[in-house]
Design a protein around this nucleic acid. Structure first.
Lengths: 217, 217
DNA sequence: TTGCGCCTATCAATCGATTGATTGACTTCC
DNA sequence: GGAAGTCAATCAATCGATTGATAGGCGCAA
């Protein structure tokens, strides 16, 4: 038993029924351990949630920065950033959902810390959009609303994307980049051609079919 | 004391800390009544949630249909529908949030019923987009993804819109219609000019500053 | 007008069940 | 032998829900 298994079990339950609705005995059962053992790995139920959200947001920030660094112009940077955002959300839908929905379950102090990480991530989008607005590559009536719209529609991917569904991850990425380009009125000539889009690592906390709860034999 | 006050108090707490994290004694205190009295108005905590979500979704369906009926072409229908969606979300942010987040707290039977209402509302968007695609007014690589993106970015308005903020509701509506038009590549000549956009009624369940919890004098 | 019956609204007190968390003892492994 | 891992048992607190009782308003007959 290691802490990643505990986190995966927790994310699976938190994503499905929420933090408050999940008891520690249920968490233990899902992870295959006694509820008391859980406190040997994580300080408390709350600390467990902090770990999950913190690791998720930090991975998003790191991945977002990497995506930005692979491109030069705001136009191609936007493509990389959105493609990463979509990839991360589609690869870690349950963890991302917990990080989004359960912020309110945190203590005020922890929530403030996590909110700062969230702001840090959103700042990446703000920077790219502002840069592109200055160079004239982007055109929109309101930069803030454009950022909110672009981010929100990407986040929504977690609600419906399925690994073996009608659309491949790359198709979804390309389509969302295209929609963002349209929102920002990027000229056809400015669009990068055939640039490889970034993928996203699966977080240790993201539960998968391979990580099903171990039951008695 | 009437049932709307109970619902408003419940929505305020559910939106802030979630259904599972809110106790019935807390609900009673917020509504200014004893927890037992709450059972005189609503059958149970769960029934209260069902009422809230059901009334919200039914209002969305009704409002969405009305919005559609005021326009003829898919292009202007889309504007009306999106403008309503944004108006409803901005006018009833807390109720809308509860209806979105707390679906998972419902029993399987109730969740199925509410999901059907949700599907009914989403079908309005599907219909408009399909019609516009047939007439050639819209152009997109994937109709389903376009619908998901357009709806999701509109729903996100609940997260940041404030009645007396930088942007008026009408400005937000116009901007989101414009972004949707861009996503769907609506031609400039096809856009309706100066059409009045729909507003949305405030639900009886939506808590406002006028509905603050009554305290002892 | 008085008085009786009925209904709605309300609450203090309490129910059994469950919550998050802790303890002390037992096992396992180096 | 000591550190790490594990769990049954238990803690006080809180949970959703129910009980029996009270207060007040309304209609109606005497």
């Amino acid at each position: 038993m290691d802490i990643d298994q505990v986190q995966r079990a927790a994310v699976a339950r938190f994503a499905q029924q929420g933090f408050a609705a999940t008891g520690i005995r249920e968490l233990g059962t899902a992870a295959g351990i006694n509820s008391a053992t859980l406190y040997h790995y994580v300080g408390s139920k709350h600390d467990l949630l902090v770990r999950i959200i913190s690791e998720c947001l930090k991975a998003m920030i790191t991945g977002g920065r990497e995506a930005l660094s692979t491109a030069q112009t705001p136009t191609s940077q936007l493509a990389q950033l959105i493609a990463f955002h979509v990839a991360f959300t589609a690869t870690n839908p349950q963890t991302a959902r917990v990080a989004e929905y359960e912020m309110r379950a945190l203590t005020p102090v922890s929530r403030e810390e996590m909110q700062q990480l969230r702001d840090e991530y959103e700042a990446l989008f703000t920077k790219v959009l502002t840069d592109g607005d200055k160079t004239g590559e982007f055109s929109t009536a309101d930069l803030t609303m454009a950022r909110l719209a672009v981010m929100e529609m990407g986040t929504g991917v977690a609600h419906w994307y399925r690994p073996h569904g009608r659309l491949s991850l790359e198709q979804v990425q390309q389509n969302f980049v295209a929609m963002a380009y349209r929102i920002l009125a990027v000229r056809e000539t400015a669009k990068p051609s055939n640039t490889p889009l970034p993928s996203a690592q699966q977080l240790p906390s993201e539960p998968t079919a391979q990580h099903v709860t171990q039951t008695v034999n």
